[in-house]
Design a binder for these strands. Structure first.
Lengths: 217, 217
DNA sequence: CGAAGTCAAGAGCAGTGCTCTTGTTTTGTT
DNA sequence: AACAAAACAAGAGCACTGCTCTTGACTTCG
């Protein structure tokens, strides 16, 4: 037996079809949003019966959860990369990079942003399984907050963040959460149309807001 | 003719039924959220045919818009009252009052909050008609920002705020919008479950965040 | 080879927003 | 008072949704 993982033809087909379903669902999510995402439309897109999809995802909610985990992961990578590209000691620069990366992503993918950080999807309660992936993003922020307390090199990887979060001083935690909320609020105001007739140059406005929210100052 | 407004029996019945529809819709909105609000359920609640509802509201979206306007109005009153109860020169106190009133309302009516300030309802684009009512709330903030620029008594009523907003200095406008976004972000983080395992005493936490967001400092 | 497990498809249920038609009632005008 | 016009409630129906159950075909494994 050469294959350490004895994948039968059926198992291979299953993995591919599962991926195809997710891919089609992602397309729908990006185009029409999570609420309009339809299992039947996914089935139509893939040329299969709607009932067949339920063999791969037990419910629409499970499919949404899968997307949620994937998106949190990708966004986490993105934000992490933006943070890692900065000089570690330049806390303000790292904050700007984090905020700018998040907003750029949100503007490019508004439905995905609304899915992750907007009001919960109708009838869909994010299960426990989504908390860990979401921490992937906030972990970068926690890293920043940790350096706020004790500047200097850390060897911690992502997995440690959740534990290290307990070591945060109240002051640093407050700064981080306030800045985080301000960031999401600013993006939401823009994307959800609450700045219409109030702001013209959104890029310039956001840059100013971002600096005012800087948790390191 | 004693009646300055010659309301026919039919017109009276129409007004009452319209109000009953709105009341039933508000109940549904509060309990299950805007996305789950169903015209048929409203009709069932009132013991009428679903098709009859469409004689009073041409579409579900129009019904939602009506609710939006009503809610913006009520919230505007609430925030306005909170602001008016403060010493006009105590800008920080007014900011605290505004933020506390908004959060208290949001916590008590999370679905309504998500409807007004969360991600837009699926397939529902807030029409122009909702911009003016929403300004009812932000007007209080603008009033605060105006006093930030030039402390002293103003005789302006609500209607002036939109015009006066143009007189705001860039600095004051930036402070106001940043604080406003931070406020909504903080409430959204709490209500949408993004602070799970991060905050225990939400009241105390919010008070700290509110002070950090203070646009007058 | 045969039993067990997996799969796709179809039909069907209950729900949705919305439209159209039918028949009734109220209104405003001869 | 009689009549036309408008407003109304109700029902049937369309297209859509998530989801279930059954049926029949296929793959995998003992």
């Amino acid at each position: 037996m050469p294959t350490s993982a004895p994948l039968t033809a059926r198992a291979v087909a299953r993995r591919e079809l599962t991926a195809a379903i997710v891919a089609s669902a992602r397309r729908q999510l990006a185009e029409i949003g999570p609420a309009q995402l339809s299992v039947r439309a996914v089935a139509r897109d893939l040329g299969m019966a709607s009932s067949a999809v339920y063999r791969y995802f037990p419910s629409r909610d499970e499919l949404l959860t899968e997307l949620l985990v994937i998106l949190y992961g990708e966004l986490g990578d993105l934000v992490d990369a933006a943070d890692a590209a900065c000089e570690p000691t330049d806390l303000t620069g790292r904050w700007r990079a984090l905020g700018s990366a998040l907003r750029a992503w949100a503007v490019a993918a508004p439905h995905e942003y609304a899915f992750l950080y907007g009001s919960p999807v109708p009838g869909y309660a994010a299960p426990e399984a989504t908390i860990t992936p979401s921490a992937r993003v906030t972990g970068v922020l926690i890293g920043l907050a940790l350096d706020l307390d004790a500047p200097g090199p850390r060897t911690s990887t992502f997995d440690d963040f959740r534990a290290l979060a307990g070591d945060l001083s109240d002051e640093a935690a407050l700064r981080a959460i306030t800045a985080w909320g301000g960031l999401l609020g600013a993006i939401s105001l823009e994307l959800f149309g609450h700045l219409t007739n109030a702001v013209t140059d959104y890029d310039a406005h956001f840059a100013l807001v971002l600096d005012r929210l800087d948790p390191t100052s």
